[in-house]
Design a protein around this nucleic acid. Sequence first.
DNA 1: GTCTATAGAAAGATAGAC
DNA 2: GTCTATCTTTCTATAGAC
Lengths: 196, 196
Amino acid sequence: MPYSTEHKQRTRESILSTAIRLFSNKGYDSVTIDQLMTAAGLTRGAFYTHFDSKSELYAEAVLAAAMQSPIASGACPGEKGTDWIRRTASLYLSREHLEQEDFPCPLAFLVTDVANREPAVRNTYTRVYAEFVRVLQSHLPMEASTTAKGSELSWAMAALMIGGVAVCRALNDEATIDRVLVACRQVVEGLAEDVA
Amino acid sequence: MPYSTEHKQRTRESILSTAIRLFSNKGYDSVTIDQLMTAAGLTRGAFYTHFDSKSELYAEAVLAAAMQSPIASGACPGEKGTDWIRRTASLYLSREHLEQEDFPCPLAFLVTDVANREPAVRNTYTRVYAEFVRVLQSHLPMEASTTAKGSELSWAMAALMIGGVAVCRALNDEATIDRVLVACRQVVEGLAEDVA
DNA sequence: GTCTATAGAAAGATAGAC
DNA sequence: GTCTATCTTTCTATAGAC
């Protein structure tokens, strides 16, 4: 691979990382190409060598964000079963995640934002969400990891975790945020254990 | 009250209703003053007689949306206890709500959007959310409507309902949407009953 | 591949006529 | 109070130099 191609690849990934960070924290419309490129250490003009348009970048960013987020893509490889669920819930529904600037879960940080975007982006979101649910279910205890009941539970658990984080980001009161986080963690754990 | 004042009041409310509809379905940035006023049957220039700025309008719209949404502000006055919860969950987590253009629940339709806005808007969101939780808890069976455990459950139930609706709006697959709606409804009902 | 410069469109907000 | 006209800013995207 010639130097220039390799270099282009690196630049592209740098733009993408910056995009994930900015889009996740400010939403699609509030991020300008200028801000993005400046934050990536470049200027406006260089953008279009790497991406066709802002919306194309967004679509890629949502997917890349999902794959890079340690929280969404099956963290805690050490743990198993209910322990994994408990640990994931406590990572996902945490202040650290809320304040996570670099790799937050796009499912939570961009829910409403994605809803207002074109079908291609929503297709990506749909796939990422389904994968999140699949991973959750695979860690449910015993047979629940394959039954219809366990599946149903997983679809709701994912919505609860995403909802909890999304709501907390909209709230403006520390005490309320902590209450929501704790409550959601407790309920997720309870659900995972009761299904056994 | 002189005619002009009364008329101004009506116009103002008309703009506000239009704002609720447009903001809820497209988000803050995607709605322009021009679109808004045209949809309200007026022109750009008339806007600033009623509101100081777009962001001020947004803050008012979020509050008004919460009060006008029959779903969020304690619908089903006929039902009581667990029946009320079950009925509210089935209204909230429904396709009708997802496709509701005029009075959707801003807690779900604007979560991420509000998160990216100024503190005043997030304060409003916080109050509306807390009220939603309060109403939910008041319909929990027996003592749960006053205990700490019932309170915790309510904070999570609200996040689950909001998360379910918000996620479904981002999804782009009918079957997946139905699965999420059903799953969330089931879990909400289960939670409300198990606490008894 | 990245830069500066700029075209071209659209937005928020204001001014002044009616 | 509402209109049309406009100021000013900001944004996406492109052109051309290096």
